[in-house]
């Protein structure tokens, strides 16, 4: 279900209606960015954001630090493959 794909906000086209242009691998499409806008992250600051695009809406911002943590963990696993003393699936309890 729910095809969602990372894209980057290229341009804010209508701040009032919270509309922007997103780029997905060289394909550009108008999207609604209401879901990624709040007091701490006003419309103007969305420019350059990496977001999850689903049916013409930016559903959430991608957290680059968390993405890096996941990738680091994958790197670690690849490195550990030979030894495998402790399969490193550290528990990551969902916050809250």
């Amino acid at each position: 279900m729910c095809l969602g794909i990372p894209g980057q906000i290229l341009e804010i086209t209508d701040g009032e209606q919270k509309l922007a242009i997103v780029d997905v691998g060289g394909v550009r499409r108008g999207v609604n960015i209401a879901c990624i806008v709040d007091e701490d992250h006003p419309v103007e600051s969305c420019l350059g954001d990496w977001v999850l695009v689903h049916v013409g809406f930016a559903l959430n911002r991608i957290d680059p630090e968390e993405a890096q943590i996941t990738l680091d963990m994958l790197e670690e696993m690849a490195a550990l493959q030979a030894t495998l003393a402790d399969p490193p699936f550290g528990p990551i309890p969902a916050q809250g």
């Binding site: 209401a34 879901c35 990624i36 806008v37 709040d38 999850l52 559903l59 959430n60 991608i62 957290d63 680059p64 968390e66 993405a67 943590i69 996941t70 528990p91 990551i92 309890p93 969902a94 916050q95 809250g96």
Partner: peptide, 18 residues
């Protein structure tokens, strides 16, 4: 438990606007 692998996009409380 409920664990979260998709931390780059999923937060505990979801998206408040949505």
């Amino acid at each position: 438990q409920v664990e979260n692998q998709y931390t780059r996009l999923v937060q505990a409380t979801g998206n408040p606007v949505a």
